[in-house]
Amino acid sequence: MKTRQMVFFLVWAGFILYAWMVAPNGNDGYLNQLIRMNDPDPLLLTVFSLLGLFPITFMILLLTHDNSRIPAWPFAAGSFILGAFALLPFFFLSTAEKNRSDRIPSTLKRVLNAVYFHVLLMVSTTMLIIFGLLQGDFTFYAQAFKTSQFVHVMTIDLFVLTGLSIYTLHWDQQKTGVQNKSFLWGALPVIGVMVYLVQNKDQRRQKIEG
């Protein structure tokens, strides 16, 4: 097992153990509140919504180059439900070698890599984050983080997915030949990935369609 694969395996295993053994055991009905939209706290709603948007960014990045031995799409699809728990295994099971043609139809790749789609995600996510920061109750969220396993794990998941974004953008740069340091945009949840995609749209399009 390569160093990269070992690191991702340890992160995945550590995250599972953390959620099981370290996260608080309380369950105050926050998930039910969010699903039913029963007046959830705006900051809580924002974080929950970001976890629904993050898988879209990984669908764009991973399915653009889905040509290795292990298919990327099941892991990207699973992240809509399980977040980083479903996504991390791809990074320690996959290999860097290309050994087949892309699994994803060219039409779907064009839709996923359409600039208007990226701009729409960027604008909607920006509005979502501004709403959460301005209207949310940070004291309420901090208390929920301390007492609720769901909120606690959800918050950690957001940070893990953000870290994965940085790595995946760097991986995308290697695939598409982008030479700048724009992979650091991944530190800004979802929005940064869209900025990277728009900023490097021409170079990526040439590589993807070529």
Results as ranks from 00 to 15, higher is better:
R100H: 02
Y141A: 08
L51K: 06
L112E: 11
V153M: 08
T162R: 04
R69F: 06
L88M: 11
T107M: 06
A76M: 04
R103L: 02
L82H: 00
A96W: 14
G83P: 04
T107Q: 12
F80R: 00
V47N: 09
M122E: 09
A77R: 01
T147W: 08
I70M: 10
L128F: 03
G163N: 09
A84S: 10
L169S: 05
S106D: 13
F85I: 13
Q149P: 00
T168S: 08
F54R: 02
I130H: 08
G163D: 10
D172Q: 07
L158N: 04
A142I: 15
F140P: 10
R103T: 00
L164N: 07
F90L: 11
I166G: 02
F48P: 12
L53E: 09
I70L: 11
I81V: 02
F131P: 04
T155V: 09
I156V: 13
N99T: 00
T125M: 02
Q135C: 13
T147Q: 13
F117H: 07
I166C: 05
L120W: 06
K109S: 05
L53G: 11
D102Q: 02
D157I: 03
Q149A: 11
P74T: 05
S101V: 00
V47E: 08
Q143D: 14
V47S: 08
F90R: 05
L82G: 01
V153L: 09
L82V: 00
P55I: 04
L61M: 14
